[in-house]
């Protein structure tokens, strides 16, 4: 009998819903999947015959491609639905989209949506597995998981580590998922950004708020630098990009002023010279490309863990002997 990984249930909506054991199980499962992407034939038959719909109601290149690689390397059949030209753009409600997908007998949906809560909304209404690829400002669990995996790869642990998330926390689903995941795995979490971009009551989530980025860098073992959405400037949250870079930008000078070897992550795509300077992004502190590689492995692990396995079949699986 093979040892079993922790069950995730039907869907992956957010890290807030998972416990530490489940998160560790995903990270552990991602390890063997890293190796598959190194093979000559980068494909295993785990999801052969499964149909996955990538429902991207908001533009995304990186996450969609990463999911697509993961799905194809697991031999799934994939269909991409993008915002432009889709019926949702023509006024179809999310309920109707859900019902239509259901009627086409699909197995999984990967959803990216502009509205917070959209992934859970869909998950509650269709029997297929639903994976949240980012819903509004709520969660982006696969991004946080790949961040956790990258951090663990480089430091060997998460527990007790000091991780500071820098930038627009208010609108960031990456920040929320990271905060939930890091806290569950026992890390200390800090946030740093303009007060206009920090959510109300953020301290009550159990994170330390840093006013100045210099203090954050001094404190942190790991910096997760968020992309500054350029719309935020129009919204008046920050006066100018230049000022943002001067006050909150991660530069080699600032990193060197702090002791120790700070690890720098960025979920991409980067605004070089705004939230992060090029010499940091391309320098020894950065693990940004490792994140991209790990993204495929983490998503393969999640697809593997969610696909097929239904709880009521757990007993049957336990009875199954040596093949």
């Amino acid at each position: 009998m093979s040892p079993a990984a922790s069950s995730l249930g039907k869907d992956l909506v957010g890290l807030e819903d998972l416990d530490a054991g489940q998160i560790r199980s995903i990270l552990d499962t991602a390890e063997p999947f890293k190796e598959i992407s190194e093979r000559k034939i980068k494909k295993v038959p785990v999801l052969r015959g499964k149909t996955i719909v990538n429902l991207f109601m908001e533009p995304s290149t990186r996450t969609r491609i990463s999911f697509e690689f993961a799905e194809k390397r697991l031999s799934a059949d994939t269909v991409n639905i993008a915002a432009s030209g889709s019926s949702v753009q023509k006024g179809e409600t999310l309920v109707d989209t859900a019902r239509n997908l259901e009627a086409m007998k699909i197995d999984m949906v990967v959803i990216r949506h502009w509205a917070s809560g959209a992934a859970g909304f869909l998950a509650d209404r269709i029997p297929s597995n639903v994976i949240n690829a980012g819903d509004g400002s709520h969660e982006h669990p696969t991004q946080a998981l790949l961040d956790l995996l990258t951090i663990r790869d480089h430091t060997g642990r998460i527990e007790g580590l000091k991780v500071c998330i820098v930038g627009d926390i208010l609108h960031s689903r990456v920040a929320r998922s990271n905060i939930f995941g890091l806290l569950k795995l026992g890390a200390e979490v800090g946030v740093c950004g303009p007060r206009t971009l920090l959510p109300a009551g953020i301290g009550e989530l159990g994170v330390t708020v840093f006013r100045r980025v210099e203090e954050a860098i001094e404190w942190a073992d790991v910096l997760n630098v968020l992309r500054l959405q350029l719309e935020r400037m129009k919204g008046g949250y920050v006066p100018t990009l230049r000022e943002y870079n001067r006050v909150y930008g991660i530069s080699t000078r600032r990193l060197e002023a702090a002791s120790g070897e700070t690890l720098v992550l960025h979920p991409g795509p980067m605004n070089r010279g705004v939230e992060i300077d090029s010499d940091v992004a391309d320098g020894p502190h950065s693990v940004i490309l490792k994140q991209v590689t790990n993204g495929v492995a983490v998503r393969m692990a999640i697809l593997y863990l969610l696909a097929g396995g239904a709880p009521e079949q757990a007993e049957a699986a336990k009875q199954e002997g040596v093949g």
Binding site: S2, A4, P32, V44, A307, Q313, A314, A316, A317
Partner: peptide, 22 residues
Amino acid sequence: LDITLYRDDLATVGPRPVIGES
């Protein structure tokens, strides 16, 4: 060699088996 990902019963087994190293 870990054959988990090539099993023919993956669609039906309950908790996912832990994948070993190949």
